[in-house]
Write a protein that binds this DNA or RNA. Structure first.
Lengths: 243, 243
DNA sequence: CGTTAAATTGATTCCGGTCAACTGCTGTGG
DNA sequence: CCACAGCAGTTGACCGGAATCAATTTAACG
């Protein structure tokens, strides 16, 4: 299906039989990194592995928020629907990302799996209890929230002050950056999301995204491959994005 | 100068001689609301009143972040400068707003006073110490960060998916909402920021903002007055913003 | 009153949106 | 095994909203 996604889905490492949180390969990427030893055992007692099929919704905008999640495999699309039907894709949660950072009453976005996805689910009340008991976990959540806020501000700047071409180039580079952060370094970039998702993320139309990708392909800045793009001339993209 | 800003600047109530934090009129609006009694005394010991003249910078993007602030009077413009000179105004901090929520290493935005402004300054190290000692203060900071994140997401949606007219209408209504939150309820809305600031906040040009305001004036949805606008037909603005 | 910055207004351009047709892939059922 | 339905993506023609360029008017202040 996706020819460039690398190793396919496997069982959730948060599953107790697999060694639990201590062995979780996304632990150091996630808020769980705030915890050690027996604290991890407490966390593990709360965790429930969860598997989503492609296009399956994890939760919807407006639903009462009864759980928080940690993505361990795959990609989740976070979006908002406007009253008139227009959609805005806030972002994409990838391996190590935490959903429900702010511990809100109700979810403010809809979360849907883009492909086969696994997560760790934590009951919100129980998790909130743990947070209340472990200040450095709260500390870590807050740091993460600050980081997210910063990303959100970057994205605002992108949305408000940049041309379509700059948006697409920045998007690809930001995605490469995120893959690098989770140890995926390849010139070929998987795009688990569709063109419409990219458009709704960048405030463009699907046609514009398509046109720009083909143009960048034609100009040999990248190569469109099934399920992703190969960044042939990353320097050129960087120049476009920086402008 | 501004004919609609109401009572003019007065001395910072965080000043010890004025009764200190306990008497601070913005306390319940700010993160300080997390604290009570003697904890407030601890906070107060750290607080330094600060006065800014119009257009004076509080800190600049990239500066080492050595303090956090609470706005007690006036309005602060938060902006980012892009390498090529384009500017994005992230938002406006008003009475009760906290600057430096995420306790970052370096400021990610530039903060400048729009008019005469007073703030409480807290040394960051000292404040961080207090936060570490008082989990419910951290809790409160984190709640606030979540709220900010939510606002940022709303604004992203606004920037990416709405027409110029919707942007301007939404901006005015959001501003009214914020004034209401701090007890300012008047049909006349003060606009302490200039047209260029509004444009840079909404991802528009100054000409477009000016044209739209004039049009809304001509259509009797609002009335442009020195230093602000009078919302004559708020219902109409709401219909425009909701679209 | 004169100087300067902010805001408004007008003419024109152009980027990205809209509408529409087409391509190609994938899966399904006869 | 092929026909075809259905959908994602691409491509083209055209249009329109906001940007750009350019004066001009208004307000602010010494």
């Amino acid at each position: 299906m996706l020819s460039v996604t690398g190793p396919s889905a496997h069982s959730c490492l948060h599953d107790r039989t697999d060694g639990g949180c201590a062995a979780c390969k996304v632990r150091l990427l996630s808020v769980c990194a705030a915890l050690t030893g027996e604290e991890l055992d407490d966390l593990e007692a709360l965790s429930q592995p969860l598997h989503l099929a492609p296009h399956q919704a994890l939760f919807r905008q407006g639903d009462p928020a009864d759980a928080v999640y940690n993505v361990t495999e795959g990609t989740v699309r976070l979006s908002r629907l406007l009253p008139d039907g227009r959609r805005h894709v806030m972002g994409f949660a990838m391996v190590g990302d935490f959903l429900g950072l702010a511990l809100p009453e109700r979810y403010t976005v809809t979360a849907e799996a883009l492909g086969p996805t696994t997560l760790c689910r934590f009951d919100k009340r129980a998790f909130a209890g743990l947070v209340a008991a472990k200040p450095h976990l709260l500390q870590r959540l807050h740091e993460r929230a600050g980081y997210e806020l910063n990303l959100a501000q970057d994205h605002m700047t992108l949305l408000s002050r940049r041309s379509a071409e700059e948006k697409v180039a920045s998007f690809l580079l930001a995605l490469r950056e995120r893959y690098a952060r989770i140890g995926q370094t390849s010139v070929t970039l998987a795009l688990p999301m569709g063109r419409q998702d990219i458009a709704d993320h960048l405030g463009l139309t699907i046609e514009t995204v398509s046109r720009l990708l083909t143009r960048l392909d034609r100009e040999k800045a990248l190569l469109i491959v099934p399920g992703g793009v190969r960044l042939v001339d990353a320097g050129r993209l960087e120049r476009l994005a920086a402008a």
